[in-house]
Design a protein around this nucleic acid. Structure first.
Lengths: 163, 163
DNA sequence: GCAACTGGTTGCATAATACAACCACATTGG
DNA sequence: CCAATGTGGTTGTATTATGCAACCAGTTGC
């Protein structure tokens, strides 16, 4: 953002993340733990195009929301990680999901994780954020009882099977 | 949204509001109490183009976020009002502003209202939402001590003068 | 009668997005 | 060694969205 339209917090957030794909990419890295290009390209229902994905990853790295690193297991593989700035989007993403669940035609299986996050409230969000810090920033694990991400993923997979 | 890309709550919210202008329009109606086309066109720093504004107003009405009504004082005037669905965006907008304030180069005078909303917490948001309901939906006033919108506006004007 | 105000529309240029095909290099299995 | 598959993308083209400036017809106040 070289020339922001204004210094309003809402506007600046919109200029950074206000498009149809950026938050989808972050959602998939955050909740799906997809760390590679191909996983992000083929993993989700929304079917992002490869050039758009490449562009968004580049922009998000430039905006300080992601970092890109080499994967030691494969010379061509790149690993994308969330930064603290992106982890700090958790409450915003939860609110987005909550509003969507209240007002838009969501499907059950895509809402189950959202439902759990809403029920858990800010305490659970904080646990989740801490977990993301160990997963993406290499922070020391806080030795929590059960992984939030695992709980979300298990519930999601169960809902998928029921379908 | 005739063909949603997926039934994910976050995605559906993004398909509804994920562009650079929709939430700016809602922000101005909500926090600036701008109810007419011209007020929305010329009132804010971001300088929206008239065709974009017209298009967004139309879409937001279609999406059930705004209603359009005739203004009795002027045959050509249209009054735009928030629906319950839009009022329900308050927590999301607060989170957006909070994130922007933490991570982006916001200006003081455009952050002051955001700051007050963050300090006030969910209790204040609820008061504000109730106030919006009386203002936009004609709900009976809840007889609150001081209008939240007034408090926000006063603080904003004071910050503007100091500049 | 006329200037200012009302909510827009129109035309054109540029930018973003979508879709499909393609690519060079790396790794794996036989 | 070789072929199949996996890797992160790029390229080309078509469509759609956005941005900008000019314009417009009806309404109101004086």
């Amino acid at each position: 953002m070289t020339n922001p339209r204004s210094g309003c917090p809402i506007n600046l957030t919109l200029e950074t993340l206000g498009d149809r794909w950026s938050l989808i990419v972050i959602r998939d890295i955050m909740f799906g733990n997809r760390r590679h290009f191909r996983e992000l390209l083929t993993g989700s229902d929304e079917r992002i195009a490869s050039n758009i994905l490449a562009d968004r990853l580049k922009r998000l790295v430039e905006a300080g929301l992601l970092t890109k690193a080499d994967d030691p297991t494969h010379k061509q593989k790149a690993v994308y990680s969330l930064t603290e700035r992106a982890i700090d989007l958790v409450p915003l993403l939860v609110q987005m999901g909550a509003w969507g669940r209240r007002h838009l035609p969501v499907t059950h299986e895509m809402s189950i994780r959202q439902e759990l996050l809403e029920e858990g409230g800010p305490t659970l969000w904080d646990d989740f954020m801490d977990e993301l810090r160990t997963l993406h920033l290499g922070a020391p694990p806080r030795g929590d009882s059960a992984s939030v991400l695992e709980r979300l993923t298990t519930a999601y997979r169960r809902a998928l099977k029921q379908k």
